[in-house]
């Protein structure tokens, strides 16, 4: 059992990446009922911005991260105004077909632009190595990821619970028509949260490159994980997404570590169990 602490930290770190990359999807699904299967493209886009900025322009890692978030957010606001808002109120089938199509457009475009191979992304020296936590040696970068994930989750939860704009978002998630009836411009609010979600996905994508690697198929490869996080967590909830992402990360890493032959399926077992237990998300009894 010497591996247990390592598995826990690896799993949580992976979970935090999943959280950053999927929380925007959870919120937009809750707010406007948009099933955006292309959400992972914002993560991949952020990853490419960071990887290329570092490898081609020599931008330091810590600067590449906000750059990635910003680029993904700009991409988010532009695509929301041009494409995604046309999908609000359409049938889930229309949304699924359209956004799956977008994923393939992304893959083809990224392959043409950057090649089909993996992007190199080495961690800077000061983020490599291990730290000693009371006798347990843990990868420093894993620890940073966990800290960042928790910090972002706290900031989002506080923003949602304690600010006026958070209350406007919650009201709109609960009843968009009535929100309009009390003067809330739900469309603008949605563009704003969509942009924030895309930016966070970009940040998560950039952080993920040194851990998960990056090639053009990234949005497709992790799509099932994003969807499991959103379904388990429940649409529209930050806390639910956080808990679900942590659980998915832990179970996936533990499954592959302890049961190498079948471990890849552990996360699907978790998803089925969670959906049987709480079909509307882990926080909704």
């Amino acid at each position: 059992m010497t591996g247990l602490p390592v598995v826990v930290f690896d799993g949580l770190a992976y979970g935090m990446l999943l959280f950053l990359m999927s929380v925007g999807l959870a919120v937009t699904l809750g707010l406007m009922g948009l099933v955006n299967l292309a959400h992972g493209a914002f993560a991949a886009g952020g990853g490419y911005v960071a990887a290329l900025a570092m490898s081609r322009a020599g931008v330091p890692f810590l600067l590449a991260l906000p750059l990635a978030a910003l680029a993904a957010a700009v991409g988010g606001v532009v695509l929301e105004r041009l494409l995604f808002r046309r999908l609000y109120g359409r049938s889930p089938l229309d949304q699924v077909l359209f956004t799956v199509g977008l994923v393939y457009v992304w893959i083809a475009a990224a392959t043409a632009a950057f090649g089909a191979g993996q992007q190199p992304a080495d961690l800077p020296g000061f983020l490599q190595g291990q730290v000693d936590l009371g006798g347990v040696r843990v990868g420093l970068y894993r620890l940073v990821l966990i800290g960042l994930g928790v910090a972002v989750a706290l900031a989002l939860a506080l923003g949602l619970e304690r600010t006026r704009i958070g209350a406007l978002v919650r009201a709109s998630v609960e009843d968009a028509e009535m929100a309009g009836g009390v003067s809330i411009r739900v469309g603008r609010l949605f563009a704003l949260t969509f942009t924030l979600g895309a930016g966070l996905a970009g940040l998560g994508g950039a952080l993920a490159v040194p851990v998960l690697g990056l090639d053009p198929t990234f949005p497709l490869k992790y799509l099932a994980y994003f969807l499991i996080v959103v379904c388990m967590g429940g649409a529209g909830t930050v806390t639910g997404s956080f808990l679900a992402a942590a659980a998915v990360g832990l179970v996936d890493v533990a499954g592959k570590y302890y049961l190498p032959e079948i471990g890849a399926f552990a996360v699907y077992g978790l998803a089925v169990a969670a959906l049987v237990w709480r079909p509307n998300g882990v926080l909704r009894a």
Binding site: R164, A167, L168, R170, A171, E174, D175, E177, M178, A179, G180, G181, V182, S183, I184, R185, V186
Partner: peptide
């Protein structure tokens, strides 16, 4: 609706439609 409300319409719907997940004060503040 949001723009009509900004011009001066106020609506008390038949089903009330208060925001169940917001506090009373938040319902007023939004």
């Amino acid at each position: 609706a949001a723009e009509r409300v900004r011009l001066g319409l106020g609506w008390v719907p038949q089903e009330r439609r208060i925001f169940r997940t917001l506090s009373v004060q938040e319902n007023l503040e939004v």
